[in-house]
Amino acid sequence: MQTKRTFGLLIAPFVVFTSVFFLIAVGKTVSLSFGYDPLLGHHQITWRYYQAIFANKTFIRTLLRTFSVTFLSSLLASLIGLRLAFLIKRSQSWGARFLSRIANVPLVLPHIFMVLVFIWCFDQTGLLVRLIHLLGWHQFQLPVLIGDPYQVGILLTYLWKETPYVLLTLLLVVRQLEDDYFLAAKNLGANRWQRLWYVEWPLVQPAFFNALIIVFSFSFGAYEVPALLGSQKYELLPVMIYDLYQQSDLTLRPLIMSFNVVISVIAIGFAGLLLGLSWWLPGGRRRQRT
């Protein structure tokens, strides 16, 4: 009895805080998205705003664009981070030690700093162009990467910022792996791919998917980078929603809230899909049970 009370007391601050602020906001968002707005005297529940969203081609296109850019950058960051973590573990060299220390730098710097540095390095007259000109290739021209229609600048900035995060989280897991499994598999004649797929991947994949989900969810809904580096013609979702929200038009609120519900459901659904994939793949919890 005593322990139950202690447990209750320990989780009480979290439960109270989450219900008061988080759950109320969720409830308000969902009810507003169905047109229930007592403030304006709307008490009727309607699907109208959801219908408007799915009929809105700009929204669908923006959604797909945002999803592809942020998923591609998160996937690349996760794969490169994973590869680097293994390279660092195997190599005891100064390069590996240096990399594992210095990877903390982009982790500490906010995204806007990374944008500033990205502009200074990859602008048309940025450091990279200057370096290549100095090396003697005077005709070299860098394609436009700031405000470009394909969002390459956004993708590269996220890659620069998130790869170290994945690297450091996975390094914690990779460092704990025993070499014994790997050596045993090698001894039994497993080739490189077999060792990777049957021995190493199952041990790290849960952490890999966790990192991928966190990085993707963050960049999918983040405003700063697309606002500073995005093209105005082909904007990304967070910029679009914020611009709508900023108009302070009370009649727009149900529409914005239904945008919020739709993109939240997509983000949660996609995270669930990735978790399910991790669960189902070798090394996932499904296999552990049997």
Binding site: A25, V26, K28, T29, S217, F218, F220, G221, A222, Y223, L237, P238, I241, Y242, Y245, I256, M257, F259, N260, V261, I263, S264, A267, I268
Partner: peptide, 9 residues
């Protein structure tokens, strides 16, 4: 949950 959705809500 996407940051922009949570923030505006």
């Amino acid at each position: 949950i996407p940051g922009i959705a949570l923030t505006t809500s």
